[in-house]
Design a protein around this nucleic acid. Structure first.
Lengths: 214, 214
DNA sequence: GTCTATAATTAGATAGAC
DNA sequence: GTCTATCTAATTATAGAC
């Protein structure tokens, strides 16, 4: 197996771009790959290629593929909270009805803009495992409980459709996000999940079906 | 590498169970594994182990892992049609409202009883590829078109909620199936997707939200 | 038709030069 | 901090005995 003595600097050019930039590029590439192909289907080589980095850099900047996955979810959950924050800012924080409508619109808008979060959650929710345990404990438990409490108040005030608070979480997220999580499928069916008019009508339809007119 | 001359009949006992039975066991095991872990995450060894068969038997009874996957989807789609058939049998076949309600109930009941179909579709819908192309061409296109036509008639007759026929497919399937497709997640959140009372209330809630009272 | 053994490829992670 | 080379383990598929 002949040594390559010919040139001292072979292969890809050395690129020192700073830890933070490479870390960010790896997270962005990884969440795309995890969303498209699931944790097992996403290879660290494909992630590195998409980030224009080398595969061992993943283990340098992150401890493991698992830790990279968790970093992706922290990123996406932070973005979701930012979108909800934008939609609920300036509202009367005691107006449960207006706040709920804003959350529904946030979920639809976010699912359309950033389908990766819902894709990853759909991949992970199909089987028990340590990643699902981590997701529920660190992100979903609180959101599920808060949404159920909000829905119970709306039910008592006569604003809510006839739907149990326990299952509202999955009914709402399913209705709000499948079109975008499965956008490749929707496109083949002739639907355009990237059309802002579609997204807007979708959000308003959900609000009007969930909140009964007074 | 020492030859094992010791015993002529080593390893697992030879089991000849007939082609049809082994084929069926492999399909049942495979759809569980594909549903739980996605196509890439499901290994043919795990499928064979679950079916109490040997890994090369997959390539004997099916041409490849891909063809086994397609056999799983034919099986599941057939079961879905059977459930829809049961729910719509005996109804006035010109009563669009009653037929639509029966289809909604079928989708919820089937998703709860057989979450594998929705799990596999959620895994496959997140990225373009030959399996998604096959699914859309052979199963989804027709269902999507028929449901949209039915919804347009209900919209004209004033029975339908304010929701575009284009996106009804994904809104309905998302609202009806995420609770069951992501049942492992729901269970960790304290919801019981296996409770028949939950399933029944879920179906009736969707019917009442989608069909406006006359 | 069932089974063992294995070929060919690819996976995540690591060692060590630079 | 980046990169090449490589280790170990796992993957799908196949060859051939039975």
């Amino acid at each position: 197996m002949g040594l390559r003595t010919e040139s001292p600097a072979r292969g890809r050019q050395r690129l020192n771009r700073g830890s933070e930039q490479v870390r960010g590029r790896l997270i962005e590439a990884a969440l795309s790959e995890f969303a498209a192909h699931g944790f097992d289907g996403a290879s660290t080589r494909a992630i590195a290629r998409r980030a224009e980095a080398h595969q061992p850099q993943i283990n340098y900047h992150f401890e493991s593929k698992d830790e990279l996955w968790r970093a992706c979810l922290e990123q996406l959950m932070g973005e979701l909270d930012a979108v909800i924050g934008e939609h609920t800012a300036g509202l009367d924080q005691t107006d449960d009805r207006a706040l709920f409508a804003a959350v529904v619109r946030s979920l639809v808008v976010f699912a359309a803009r950033r389908p990766e979060l819902n894709r990853i959650m759909m991949h992970e929710g199909t089987a028990p495992g340590p990643r699902l345990d981590w997701l529920v404990a660190n992100h979903l438990k609180r959101r599920h409980r808060d949404l159920a409490l909000r829905w119970k108040r709306l039910t008592r005030s006569g604003d809510a459709a006839a739907l149990s608070a326990d299952i509202l979480f999955h009914v709402l997220i399913g209705a709000a996000s499948l079109l975008y999580a499965n956008a490749p499928e929707a496109r083949l069916l002739g639907v355009d999940p990237d059309d802002p008019a579609v997204v807007d009508a979708h959000a308003e339809a959900l609000v009007s079906m969930l909140l009964v007119s007074r």
